[in-house]
Amino acid sequence: MTRPVPGKAEIALEYPDKFHVGTFEHSSQFEAHLDPSGFALVLERPGAEDVRKSIHMHISFGLLAGILGELAATVGKIPKGDILHRDQLADAVAQLHQALKKA
């Protein structure tokens, strides 16, 4: 199920001879789900051919766990006064934790 992007995502893809940057904002959509081997993420910006773009990523469970651990180690970089984003992250992590316990 696709949902509107609630914020902004910036993607940079660098090759030795090319550099691509894309931004996905409120007019874009995302889909995220777990499958038997990891985490899948799709970001799509609809529109005419000259503005339409998408990215598709698949991350193994081991890498996802490593990413979550790194995020936990750097959570102090979120300003203490940024209660909205701290609460959004805490709520989402609590939902994931609860779902993992039920599964």
Rank of each mutant, 00 (worst) to 15 (best):
Leu13Cys: 12
Pro4Arg: 02
Ala94Ser: 12
Lys77Gly: 14
Leu68Ile: 01
Ser54Gln: 15
His97Asn: 14
Tyr15Trp: 13
Ala73Ser: 15
Tyr15Gly: 12
Gly38Pro: 01
Leu89Asn: 07
Phe19Leu: 15
His85Ile: 10
Ala90Val: 05
Gly22Cys: 10
Glu70Ser: 09
Arg52Tyr: 02
Met57Tyr: 09
Thr2Ile: 00
His26Arg: 09
Phe30His: 01
Leu43Arg: 01
Ala48Ser: 14
Gln29Lys: 13
Val21Gly: 04
Gln98Leu: 12
Glu49Cys: 08
Ala12Thr: 15
Ala99Phe: 11
Gln98Glu: 15
Gly66Trp: 03
Asp87Gly: 07
Gly62Ile: 02
Glu49Tyr: 10
Gln95Lys: 15
Ala73Gln: 05
Val75Tyr: 07
Gln98Gly: 03
Val5Tyr: 02
Ala103Cys: 10
Val75Asp: 11
Glu31Val: 10
Ala73Trp: 02
Glu14Arg: 04
Arg86Trp: 07
Ala94Asp: 06
Lys101Gly: 08
Asp87Arg: 15
Leu96Gly: 13
Leu96Ile: 04
Ile55Ala: 04
Leu89His: 05
Ile59Phe: 00
Ile78Thr: 12
Glu70Phe: 04
Lys102Glu: 14
Ser27Pro: 07
Pro36Tyr: 04
Glu49Ile: 13
Gly69Cys: 10
Leu34Tyr: 08
Gly81Thr: 00
Ile78Glu: 06
Ala72Lys: 02
Leu71Val: 13
Lys101Cys: 09
Phe30Tyr: 01
Ile55Glu: 07
Val21His: 05
Ala73Leu: 13
Leu13Tyr: 14
Glu70Thr: 11
Val93Trp: 10
Arg3Met: 00
Ile55Cys: 04
Phe61Trp: 07
Gly38Leu: 00
Pro79Glu: 15
Leu34Glu: 08
Phe19Cys: 12
Pro46Leu: 06
Ala73Pro: 08
Ala90Trp: 05
Gln95Ile: 14
Ala40Lys: 12
Leu96Phe: 07
Arg52Asp: 02
Leu64Tyr: 00
Lys77His: 14
Gln95Arg: 15
Thr74Ala: 12
Ala90Gln: 06
Leu71Glu: 08
Phe19His: 15
His97Ile: 07
Gly22Phe: 00
